[in-house]
Computed example of a mutant assay.
Amino acid sequence: MGVKVYVSGISGNKEVKKRQQRVFMILESKNVPFVAVDITEPGKEDEKDFMQTNSTSLGCTVSDTSPRHPLPPQIFNDRDYCGDYDQFDLANEIDKLEQFLRVEVPNSNDNDESNNVIQEAQSKTQVAENELVNNVDDSVEKIETNGIASSREPSVESEKKTNGAEVAVDEEVVDDGEAAEEEADEEKNTTPSEELIRSEQEAAD
């Protein structure tokens, strides 16, 4: 057994169309499986006769208060008549829709459990994504750190070379100073006669 909603796909009555759409919306929102039977489709003459014969409520509308035949939507559970739109809407308002349709409406707790499972899966996915992002950030930081360390090494060698050059210059200065001191010492140790001989030699040159 299953819920059947008899409708008219080409009805010129706007109220009938709105009622049909509302029935569909309510059933779908409550997860009630149903079959829509369009009595205006070709080959549906038997379905149309069945609806008109077994519907005990006319489904009156504001524009058609006394229809000759029951107006859709008409709701059945298989071949058992449930009621027209007004009865359907009232049962929904007083939270008696499952009794009206003669079915068990899916428990909202089942939907809650499904939602919890979905949320848990989404949470795990988010955690995994965060861990991946953190690992990537750590890798990038390590690469940058290694790059900075490598760039600093040549500067250390340059400092060593500079220091070596300064030491070499200092040694040269020391050597020149020592040579000057030796010449001064030689001049001091030269006797007057040696100075005279040296002066004559320079004059002869």
Rank of each mutant, 00 (worst) to 15 (best):
T61A: 05
V62E: 12
A36I: 02
T53A: 10
N31F: 11
C60D: 06
N31K: 13
N31V: 08
P42G: 04
F50P: 02
E28D: 14
F50R: 06
V62L: 14
I39E: 01
F50T: 08
D38C: 05
V35F: 07
V32F: 01
E28A: 12
P42V: 07
P33I: 06
L58R: 08
I39G: 00
P42N: 10
A36F: 02
F50C: 05
T40G: 08
S63I: 04
V32I: 15
S55A: 14
S55E: 02
V32Y: 01
Q52H: 15
V35K: 11
V32A: 03
S63D: 14
E41T: 07
S57A: 13
A36H: 01
A36K: 06
N31L: 13
D38I: 02
I39A: 02
A36E: 09
N54V: 05
S29P: 07
Q52K: 12
E41H: 08
F34G: 01
N54Y: 11
G59V: 00
E47P: 03
V35I: 12
K48P: 03
E47M: 10
T53W: 07
D38A: 07
D49Y: 11
V35M: 10
V32L: 05
S55I: 02
E28T: 14
K30A: 08
G43K: 09
K44D: 04
D46R: 15
G43N: 09
T61P: 00
K44G: 02
G43P: 05
G59M: 01
D38N: 13
A36P: 02
